[in-house]
């Protein structure tokens, strides 16, 4: 028994070393911009670059619209499938997994072919159109995470009975979705939203091929031209991701409690 526990600790320690050592190395490297001393010069350099803020801000904006679109598509879809067409769930599971299997490159080539400036729906013919295309593509990439987060959230509440209880009290479908379903899966939606944001912030392929100035292409440009700033950006990206995860945990405390005390 003790032997097993020792092995468990050894494996945990090895895994921790595997994950933490590169992070520490990256962080230390990012502090070595000034010769001979550790400094935050690379971070100052990153934050003084206006392209950092413009690309990060642009990605945040795209991320926000992607989240809104994702919530508007996924929440009602998961709700109606659970409520009225439970037999469709395996199909939903399969379809939402496709973005993990099909490379983003294939997706964006498909988009460009279908929505180029000489097509019937010329999305790429304008900046707004291309942004819309980017938002749709990002939503598709985030679909596996958003779907699973929302589906898990709905599994924790008795959606059928709550819907019937609201219906018999006179509520319309919109009232049920907005005042009963959504508030009760809010934390699940949030976790899906933060995962979506993390994907959008780091997305390179689609933004690059659609020629949109997001954070992903900026990271690559900086990475190819500078030495220390990419490490600083990697650490900043990690902090943003961890911050998002921390927000999920924090907001979960304010979630409506569904546990019953019988």
């Amino acid at each position: 028994m003790k032997q097993n526990r020792l092995w468990a600790w050894i494996i945990i320690a090895l895994a921790a070393i595997y994950f933490i050592v590169p992070l520490i190395a990256t962080f230390i490297f990012s502090l070595r911009m000034r010769r001979g001393v550790l400094s935050f010069d690379s971070y100052v350099s990153v934050f003084s670059d206006p392209r950092f803020f413009s690309s990060f801000g642009y990605s945040l904006g795209i991320g926000a619209f992607t989240i809104v679109l994702g919530v508007l598509v996924v929440v009602p879809a998961v709700y109606y499938v659970r409520l009225r067409m439970p037999w469709l769930r395996p199909v939903m599971e399969f379809v939402t997994l496709l973005p993990l299997v099909i490379p983003a490159l294939v997706l964006v080539y498909g988009y460009i072919r279908l929505y180029n400036s000489s097509s019937w729906i010329p999305f790429t013919g304008s900046v707004i159109g291309t942004d819309i295309l980017l938002i749709c593509a990002c939503m598709t990439l985030a679909l596996p995470y958003m779907y699973r987060a929302v589906d898990t959230g709905m599994r924790t509440i008795d959606i059928n009975t709550l819907t019937e209880a609201a219906q018999i009290l006179g509520a319309s479908q919109w009232t049920i979705l907005s005042r009963i379903v959504f508030p009760n899966i809010f934390v699940a939606v949030l976790s899906g939203a933060f995962l979506t944001l993390a994907i959008v912030i780091g997305e390179f392929t689609i933004a690059s091929l659609l020629n949109r100035p997001t954070f992903g292409p900026y990271l690559v440009t900086v990475g190819t031209n500078r030495a220390y700033e990419p490490s600083a950006l990697a650490i900043i990206s990690l902090l943003v991701t961890w911050g998002a995860m921390g927000m999920i945990q924090l907001l979960a405390r304010f979630a409506p409690k569904t546990a019953r005390k019988d």
Partner: peptide
């Protein structure tokens, strides 16, 4: 315009 009480209470948790 009918009231109903369910076996599982069905109170809105939020």
């Amino acid at each position: 315009n009918i009231g109903m009480v369910f076996q599982a209470y069905a109170l809105f948790p939020n």
